[in-house]
Amino acid sequence: MSPSEFVIWRMSIFMGGLVFFLLLELAVAYRRPSVSKTKRWFVNLGITVFNSLAMRIIFAGAVLTVSAYVTRNHLGLLNLTPLPYWAKVVVTVVFLDLLLWVWHLLNHVVPLFWRFHRVHHTDLNMDVSSATRFHLGELFISESIKLGLVFFVGADFLGVLVFESSLVLAAQFQHSSLKAPAWFERIWWWLFVPPSMHRIHHSVKINERNTNYGTILSVWDRLLGTLLHDVNQERIKIGVGGHFDEKKLGLGHLLVMPFAHYVR
């Protein structure tokens, strides 16, 4: 697969998920928006387009290039083991998701990283558009780390493709403002991350926000003691203290937020 085909694939997954979960939100919404959904989407999709163009310029084909290099030269842990191919793909996805959990945790506990990550958390409502509301600085650091991890584990293109696709769809689902059936969420909680779990993570309360770091799998929170379940969903207020003025959460404000006054 060429870099351009990889970009087309990711864009197809992104757009398909965006439309699918938007339609579900409109059909079975969890709660009514407290601010204009149209304005929020303009901001969230605006920063998404800006980030996509910048990342395409900076990291054009980098992940696939590194993946092809380690596979061709038999580098990385997976290329030194006799595991069957399907198992290597599974290990790649699980390993990268675990390291993503660690990275997410660091974004909350390291002040420098939180400066960038709070852009994501200042969204006043949660819906599928929140899934890509990130500052370019955070994406630049995370992509750089991912390149090193792909090299270290020796991930080939299929493992990377499955991980990237799963990551996009999981993030869109867990941010969606849709009312999922209670029985489904109870089952989904055991291994994956439903909207109710991630909604707690977006709470304005710091002791609730600093939990539930999982993206694809919820098992890391369960195993490492950061899982929070028993929270009244109806009382969760989304956002970050000190950032409740909708007029100060425009695209321009989000781009300079990491360099402005620090807010915990």
Rank of each mutant, 00 (worst) to 15 (best):
P3C: 09
F6M: 09
G17H: 00
V19D: 06
V19Y: 10
L24P: 03
A27C: 12
A27I: 14
P33M: 07
S34H: 12
S36Q: 09
K37S: 10
W41N: 04
W41L: 06
N44L: 06
G46F: 03
T48C: 14
F50K: 00
L53T: 14
L53M: 14
M55L: 15
I57T: 15
A60L: 13
G61L: 05
T65S: 12
T71D: 13
T71W: 04
N73C: 04
L75C: 08
L78E: 01
K88G: 08
F95K: 00
D97Q: 05
L99M: 14
W101S: 02
V102K: 08
N107P: 04
V109P: 07
V109N: 10
P111K: 06
F116D: 00
R118G: 01
H121V: 02
M126F: 05
M126K: 02
S129V: 07
S129P: 06
T132N: 09
R133W: 09
L136S: 08
E138D: 14
E138K: 06
K146P: 06
L149C: 13
L149G: 08
F152G: 00
V153S: 00
V160T: 01
E164P: 00
L167R: 05
V168M: 14
L169T: 01
A171E: 08
L178P: 00
L178G: 04
F192T: 05
M197V: 12
I200L: 09
T211C: 14
I216N: 01
V219H: 03
W220E: 02
D221A: 11
D221Q: 10
H229D: 14
I236S: 01
I236A: 01
I236R: 02
I236D: 00
I238C: 05
H243L: 12
K248T: 12
L249E: 02
G250K: 10
G252L: 09
H253L: 08
L254S: 05
P258L: 06
F259D: 07
V263G: 07
V263E: 11
R264G: 09
R264W: 10
